[in-house]
Design a binder for these strands. Structure first.
Lengths: 336, 336
DNA sequence: CATTAGCATTCGAAATGAATGAGTGCTAAA
DNA sequence: TTTAGCACTCATTCATTTCGAATGCTAATG
């Protein structure tokens, strides 16, 4: 590809992102001060190479997936450090009063607003956290609340109903034993350990309503494994012209409501991942680009923020922004 | 309105609900064994009375809002006890293994599926519950988790960061005092009481990091006041023909995403409430009907389930269903 | 040899118009 | 009171046309 062809490709992407309509040779000839015929010749080459395409025989050109990829990986590669102008986001991160999760939420809201895309935050699951404390709080004579708290401050609770009368004395003993047994155990090992230890200790005899309690505990623990997410800005996206097709719109909404979106998001990638169009596997999303950017949390797990939008997306602005956000969220974890 | 006019109105509603298209005189003449001209005359009267309308000069008729209201309040009034045929729902309620909230969720899912509408469950807020226990669990030397548990087993937690080193001895004292102070206090009175008692007791001197802790506690309590909701079936609704208009579809999704839907839902009404079209105030919802059905929980608060769909809705089936569901959810509370 | 002017050509979008048919209101007869 | 009959209205559909923006190609130009 010649230098000029690269410039033309860049212009086609930039203009198409702005206008959402195929770009013709006349438009570019005005910008580049060469005749439209020259542009047409160059466009012909770019099309043969597969970087741009026509929507019909006599239409202007739009970038192909390959074109977008070249644009991202070669043309705007060096502009990455353009982190200027993110001051609305700086404001969010500099507000020290808010809790970490609250800050992330605000940043994601702002992200979706600023890009007119759907934004998603996938928190790290607490799978590798360790048990800090387990507790059982009686509510009525037959009901109690199970509480599990991890070393990172996550809390899960589960209500249990016991058919016999609750014996408070006994309960205290049980909880003391459970704490002794489970504190500092990684969440992922709890179920195993719980079963093993109970078989091999005197708790077995002690514990009248063992079955119920152990099962409920395991259920409470399993809630930690469910990754928490926050999704916002569905409605922003609806106004993008690519969703004028009502069928596409419906499919998109369904995909989100059925949580199929999570099949696409790249978790655990180092840095940033950009999936353009058919590069992602869910068919209803093959006109979309999904950008995921991961950050490390203190416990070795990764969290991810993602952005879903039409392939016609302002990559030049969005990619640095996604990197910027992941970096700052990671900082939030490091500060603690 | 004569008996026959009532029959014709009923048929128009029933047929229109099925077909989603204006009903002409020919259709009805075949059902009623009178000539189409007769039907036309009767339709003329019904239109003058405001019960039905035309979409254009030579179209068939569709029910007006007034027509739907008459249909609901007079024509199908007596069919209310048609609770037969809800056996999928019976199954959900008879599963005794599930927790209450889980059952409600399943019922709501099924409701939205069975009606192709959006269904919402608005749980009772815990405003009138009482504090069962408050607790503070240290996580690191500077961080702790605040826990609040109510007499109905609701749990809220909040992470706090304290700038000084945490003094465990002191913390235990503080928590004992707070428990003494707050146990059995209704959530709604906590904030007031907390401020008052601290002013008038020796805890004031005791508590080094009073500000932080008290503020965080109040924040944790305030979370109880936020009503919990569950919303499902947005995507079901998209396939209703009234949402072929893309503009309406967008407005609908926006309204839901921005939580404006909750402006419409009738909470605290006794029994069932049906708001048809312009009877509700949010403009983007004026082609929709919102049905809300409330139930009493044990602590005197009300919960509500709601159904949002096009005004062309199978009221004959949906209204008894909504009553049935509220009744059975109420039972779940009574059993405890 | 790269560039450009010129021209026939293609195709989508919007406008036009005719045919169709479902439905209506009204009138006069049964 | 009911019904047959008829003129009329209007949405829908489809083919046809027009318009304009773009293209590819060719031949002339610097």
């Amino acid at each position: 590809m010649t230098k000029r062809q690269e410039i033309i490709l860049k212009l086609i992407v930039d203009e198409y992102v702005k206008a959402a309509e195929p770009i013709g040779s006349k438009t570019l000839s005005e910008i580049l001060n060469v005749s439209s015929a020259t542009i047409r010749n160059e466009m012909g080459v770019l099309e043969d190479l597969g970087y741009i395409e026509k929507t019909h025989t006599s239409s202007g050109r739009i970038p192909s997936e390959k074109g977008y990829r070249y644009y991202i990986e070669t043309i705007i590669k060096n502009l990455d450090e353009e982190t200027a102008g993110f001051f609305e986001f700086e404001e969010v991160f500099s507000n020290k009063d808010n809790e970490r999760d609250e800050i992330i939420k605000e940043a994601i809201d702002l992200l979706s607003q600023a890009t007119n895309c759907t934004a998603i935050s996938l928190g790290p699951n607490a799978y590798h956290s360790k048990v800090k404390k387990v507790q059982l709080v009686p509510i009525t004579s037959h009901q109690a609340i199970i509480l599990v708290i991890t070393n990172f401050g996550y809390v899960e609770s589960k209500q249990i109903t016991i058919h016999e009368e609750i014996d408070t004395e006994e309960l205290i003993k049980v909880i003391d034993l459970l704490n002794e047994m489970l504190v500092d155990t990684p969440i992922s090992k709890v179920s195993e350990k719980l079963h093993y230890e109970i078989q091999h200790s005197h708790i077995k005899e002690l514990l009248k309503y063992r079955e119920t309690i152990v099962d409920s505990f395991i259920e409470a623990f399993s809630k930690f494994a469910q990754t928490k997410y926050y999704l916002t800005g569905q409605s922003n996206m609806l106004y993008q012209p690519e969703f004028n097709d009502i069928q596409k719109l419906r499919e998109f909404i369904s995909t989100i409501e059925n949580n199929e979106i999570f099949k696409i998001i790249e978790v655990d990638t180092e840095g940033i991942s950009v999936k353009i169009g058919t590069e992602n596997q869910v068919t209803s999303m093959q006109d979309c680009t999904v950008i995921s950017s991961s950050y490390d949390t203190v416990d070795g797990e990764k969290g991810t923020i993602s952005l879903v939008g039409p392939t016609r997306m302002d990559y030049r602005r969005v990619i640095p922004l996604m990197k910027y956000l992941a970096k700052h969220i990671q900082k939030l974890y490091e500060e603690e």
